[in-house]
């Protein structure tokens, strides 16, 4: 009888490493950090005619999530909208001034406001926020809704 080899058995890790790298590549490609700005607990109304946002500016749109009680969330945190919107508007004006394109106080801000509200949110909450945005120079307002396709997938 021949003697057994005492060398340790090493599994070939190359295929598993290949697979793991492919999975990492997949997740890196599909990851969307903008999703963090959305409050996924809100139930948006379903309207098939809603279209993707037409905005090609370099600055991010102002996204406001409004729940049934009228509370506003941004990036998962409740914000005091009466101070949040003016602050954001001021930042945009400062940014544009730094870029050499200052705006006057009465000028329209070139950034849309995206309003994501629960489908049962009362109009009084929405109009309050719209008025606030208008008062600080925002004129482009986008009201969010789900597409029917997404509803079917759920």
């Amino acid at each position: 009888m021949s003697g057994h080899s005492t060398e340790g058995v090493e599994p070939n890790l190359t295929p598993i490493l290949d697979m793991v790298f492919q999975l990492i590549t997949f997740f890196m490609l599909v990851i969307n950090f903008k999703g963090a700005a959305l409050d996924l607990s809100l139930q948006l109304p379903v309207l098939g005619s809603a279209r993707p946002l037409e905005y090609a500016g370099s600055m991010e749109p102002l996204l406001l999530n409004i729940n049934v009680q009228g509370q506003v969330k941004s990036y998962g945190k409740s914000v005091e909208v009466d101070t949040f919107v003016p602050h954001e508007a001021r930042l945009v004006r400062m940014h544009l001034k730094a870029l050499g394109t200052p705006l006057g106080d009465a000028d329209e801000l070139p950034i849309p406001v995206i309003i994501r509200a629960d489908k049962t949110t009362n109009f009084e909450h929405i109009i309050r926020i719209i008025r606030l945005c208008q008062a600080h120079g925002y004129r482009q307002i986008a009201l969010s809704a789900m597409n029917r396709i997404e509803e079917k997938q759920r």
């Binding site: 599909v30 990851i31 959305l38 208008q134 004129r139 482009q140």
Partner: peptide
């Protein structure tokens, strides 16, 4: 950290 973002549309208007 993977959360598929919902397919949302907008009614974009100039107010």
């Amino acid at each position: 950290t993977f959360r598929p973002t919902p397919i949302e549309g907008h009614f974009q208007m100039h107010l």
